[in-house]
Nucleic acid binder design. Structure first.
Lengths: 337, 337
DNA sequence: ATATTTCGTTAAAACGTTTTTAAATGGAGT
DNA sequence: ACTCCATTTAAAAACGTTTTAACGAAATAT
């Protein structure tokens, strides 16, 4: 039984070298003679030595952790992103500190504070509140930041996003192709950039088809972007008796909720009302009527963001800031046949 | 613009006190006089001081982070657990380091190593490999461990789980009530305890109904527990032309895959084949035919596990190890009508 | 008045690494 | 044998905090 902590000194003593040499074995193995290296490695194994990350990052000035702040860990979209991040980070030996902001600006700031205290190497964030100023404070502290699913406003920062205007256009063009006249847009708060951009895309598609966005598009904003909110929105539409020809939802969770409410009320999808969501989460194709959606390269989003971040951390001077914009893709299924 | 790092010394200088006093303000505010406290707090605010977590935990001997290792972050079951964990941890000022083992023993051990390096205060883990010995090594290092969704074998460790034997019984009894004669059990690897326990429960239900488990229950094991694996399993059943009356799946993801394959092949659910899953993930009720399932208190699982862990960390001597076992609950929907 | 306690504060020593500087070692060239 | 250089190791100084023991001053008791 190895008690509490065995330090680099114990390893050094056992291997008959100095602590500095052990450190070199750990961090610059090429600098140390083969024979001593194997001796040290043997001692490390025998003593079960584990490097003390705090001591290491205290002295080195930076840790091997990154912070990830997402808006809703319960949403498969963010889960996929998180999986991509975890994959990319762990491959390069970085640990991921997870923060869930729940779209709450206050919680988001608390996450950033925790990240700052932990002296994370960098932060990946899908910004929820207007905390862009806080992010600059992080940068001033030497913590790199990459925006995820949010295009950077300035050229001196990295970001990874998907073109939501295009996505909104794709969705609504598709509905128009199917013959829709009156379209409802069920969305989360319009302060959320994604929701706003997708609406802009929707309006462009309408305009391009010669329709008047003011008349053809009705907007129903909810306070959350989950299935419950979608269901409630649809129930309200139904009880008011003003059903549109088609519904475009700002994400799949909303759409699944809308679908549930419609089917329960005996409204046929897509015959009475066509329905399209956004994100193409795994479950979209398994729903009652398989759900048309707009697919985003979610996992890649997380992966690429992580690679960008770690590149910025590891090669600070050669690093060129990039704003990457992926393109979404229409996935037509039964709900818009 | 505040350059790099302002330390406790800078704060001390500004407030005209010693560094030790600043530390006291941070950690034992009651020990320091009101007047100096406000003076120090003012200096902290003005300088934008953020405590250096690494230095702090180096000296104090423990950090304010916990590690969470889950089997599949893409599975809503684990996502819910993770959300519960994040909630409980952040409320008490702890950061969560996320590790995804993907059911891979090797990745799991790598996660534990990262946790050990970060000197996390404790670890929450849904064990994937047979790394129980590794967990004892962590305990010897003074890192508390709470098993999540896995009952502890020994009384000196904490665990939080849901009774899977009961759950398996509930599911199969329900299928038998619906008139099923031949039942298929679509499961992940039987080395996964949950899968095994649920089968044991299934067999008990059969025995209790006077059936011969050897005849009435056919087992189809897959290598993963996601929708794709379920779909493939069902496709194989269909192509072999040996369809059972009912299918019990070890989780909802498998069940959704099975449902997709069945419906695509023109098999009616539940008329031709009844279907029940496990976990009652959000999407179960939104699927093509709403899915019957066995509900687990997922979010609570994560929350309670975190509370147990932090209690053990904060009150090491008064802490009593507990093995908490929740009871699952049957949720009957269309797929078993 | 002095002795004792209490309270608030400080100085200094850790914590376990990394990094820098200096020293030791050994081999080649003179 | 001697210098010179290259390679490898040793020693010591940081990094920013927490903590212990000691201290002075004020408050209370003798």
């Amino acid at each position: 039984m190895l008690m509490s902590s065995v330090s680099i000194k114990d390893v050094a003593a056992r291997a008959g070298v100095s602590p500095g040499t052990v450190s070199n074995v750990l961090n610059r193995p090429e600098k140390v003679a083969e024979s001593t290296r194997v001796r040290v490695e043997k001692a490390i194994r025998e003593l079960g030595f584990v490097r003390h990350g705090s001591a290491s990052s205290l002295r080195a000035g930076h840790s091997r952790t990154i912070g990830l702040s997402v808006i809703d860990i319960g949403n498969p979209f963010f889960t996929d992103v998180a999986a991509g991040v975890e994959e990319g980070a762990s491959e390069r030996g970085y640990a991921v500190i997870l923060g869930n902001s729940s779209g709450d600006r206050f919680k988001e700031e608390r996450n950033l504070l925790v990240f700052a205290e932990q002296r994370v190497r960098g932060v990946l964030i899908t910004p929820a509140g207007a905390s862009l100023a806080k992010l600059d404070q992080l940068r001033e502290r030497g913590i790199s930041v990459v925006l995820v699913d949010h295009p950077a406003e300035r050229p001196d920062q990295c970001s990874v996003a998907v073109n939501d205007v295009t996505g909104g256009s794709l969705a609504v063009s598709h509905l128009l192709d199917g013959g829709a006249e009156r379209i409802a847009y069920v969305t989360g708060p319009l302060t959320v950039r994604q929701c706003l951009d997708r609406r802009i895309g929707a309006e462009r598609a309408l305009a391009a088809a010669g329709r008047d966005p003011g008349r053809a598009l009705e907007e129903i904003a909810t306070d959350a972007m989950n299935a419950r909110a979608g269901q409630e929105a649809a129930e309200k539409m139904i009880s008011q008796g003003r059903l549109p020809d088609a519904v475009f939802c700002a994400n799949d969770l909303l759409a699944l909720g809308v679908m549930r409410a419609l089917l329960q009320a005996g409204v046929r999808v897509p015959e009475d009302v066509a329905l399209i969501g956004y994100d193409d989460i795994d479950f979209a194709s398994a729903s009652a009527v398989s759900l048309s959606s707009v697919r985003q390269p979610t996992h890649r989003l997380g992966r690429v963001a992580t690679e960008l971040l770690l590149d910025e951390c590891d090669n600070p001077e050669s690093h060129a800031h990039r704003q990457i914009m992926f393109q979404p893709e229409l996935v037509a299924r039964e709900s818009t046949r």
